[in-house]
Design a protein around this nucleic acid. Structure first.
Lengths: 264, 264
DNA sequence: CAGTGGTCTAGACCACACT
DNA sequence: GTGTGGTCTAGACCACTGC
């Protein structure tokens, strides 16, 4: 069905999702609608991170469109790092566990050597408590003041040197049961643990970066003089549907590392 | 020609550009080869920034491929911000002058309000001299030690407050004739001036970011106490073919602004 | 109106991975 | 070999722009 040159009894093509009166017709291409449907399946967990999704032919049959239309929908999802294609094997739900995209949100790189050469970060969890969200934290996470959030404070070290001090706030309900042990002992990226243990997949994030001086407590935890300039990074990470699911405030030492960014 | 099911006298499809012996066959899809050809035309200036390039049908005829193949090539160029498509009008060579992408390399945003609300940065050029490149500058610009480079030092102010102190190094030959007046008086982004006056188009850049304390001279120029933490941003900007064409070292005040980054 | 990019389809064949 | 994603083509029609 649904080709523009099909029989007149077919469902009209390009049917906009928003019917009724609207100042803009809200024209939406078929492949965008298909993309939306696939996105829904990802959201509800029909296929879990790392799993194979149905082949393009199968999806085309399910949605009653041509393979090319499904292809274009998946192309966009792949461009947004929501799925990963592998020729000859299939299309997989993206996961932070995948070797090739591990730590893709960590932009702090050692000045010499590469990330892999550092063994891996040592994590020490200083705190992991359920608290009530302040007005500010609540606003940034789209919660209400006083809602329960999990607050984690940790230090990450590279090559034995404490380098990152981070405070993390997570919505309480979605992360019920999160423990300090879990944060400390999980092998691999924290976001991979969030996927596996809580079914929360972070798909994008925004960061605001500043230069700051640490307060006494921060300086002590990073073992630096109190006049050391440090990088302040505030991150809001989002899951599907642009829903904020993590607030992270970190301060980074940048004497042996730097924040690397590609502009294009 | 060139379809896989065409007559046997046709040019073979998927002809790799690297003939002869090679450990990897270096298979290159047709559309990638077309993309390369279009890229060449952009490089040699067959179409200048802001200009309309030939229609997909014309290019398909020129290269003897189908419109779909040209389309896929242009799709990738558009994704890399090298060209811009406008339905009903055509495909244009991207330019830093275009309103919608002005200052796309400037990631420092005011904490309140938006970039447009600030009027526009005031530029004061402190220096604009031809010098010989140090070993370090030469290495970062892929030049030889002692080659001529243009060194510019300037302060950018927002709302009357000096906010950015920048040193810029440019390869001498490509920027012959660049003057302080030009740097100061050009309306619009500096990179737009580079395009218009020198035919150098920056297409991407890498940045390394650190937190630093200013030396006395820097503190004076930014009118801040010498213990103010500042953001140090080292940028290498590239033109076509990944050729480095600018080294920029800036220090940013981040008391009223922040460096904004989107992770995905 | 004609010309542009944008969408959709159908079919063929290629490169790759598993079995 | 079979099945996957990847490439390429050809043709039709849609949406937008400007004459």
């Amino acid at each position: 069905m649904s080709s523009s040159q099909s029989s007149p009894t077919d469902t009209p093509p390009h049917s906009a999702s928003t019917l009724g009166v609207s100042s803009t017709p809200a024209f939406s291409p078929l492949y965008q609608q298909i993309k939306g449907l696939i996105l829904q399946s990802l959201q509800i967990g029909e296929w879990r991170p790392g799993e194979l999704i149905p082949s393009e032919m199968e999806l085309a049959a399910r949605f009653k469109v041509s393979q090319g239309t499904v292809r274009k929908a998946i192309d966009e999802l792949a461009a947004e790092n929501l799925v990963m294609r592998r020729q000859g094997k299939g299309t997989f739900v993206a996961t932070h566990s995948a070797q090739q995209v591990q730590y893709r949100f960590l932009k702090l790189h050692p000045d010499v050597g590469d990330l892999a050469g550092e063994g891996r970060a040592q994590r020490s969890i200083l705190e992991c408590k359920r608290i009530r969200a302040s007005a500010e934290i609540a606003r940034l996470l789209s919660l209400r003041s006083g809602d329960t959030v999990v607050h984690v404070r940790r230090v990450l070290g590279f090559a034995g040197i404490p380098t990152i001090l981070e405070d993390i706030w997570l919505p309480g309900p979605a992360f019920k049961g999160l423990t300090a042990e879990q944060m400390a002992n999980y092998k691999g990226p924290t976001y991979a643990m969030f996927e596996g243990d809580f079914g929360v997949r972070m798909v994008r994030a925004d960061e605001k970066i500043r230069a700051v001086l640490p307060d006494e407590a921060q300086a002590a935890l990073l073992a630096v003089p109190s006049v050391t300039p440090l990088l302040s990074v505030e991150r809001i990470a989002y899951t599907y549907n642009d829903m904020p699911m993590e607030l992270r405030r970190g301060i980074y030492r940048t004497d042996t590392h730097h924040y690397k960014n590609a502009l294009s």
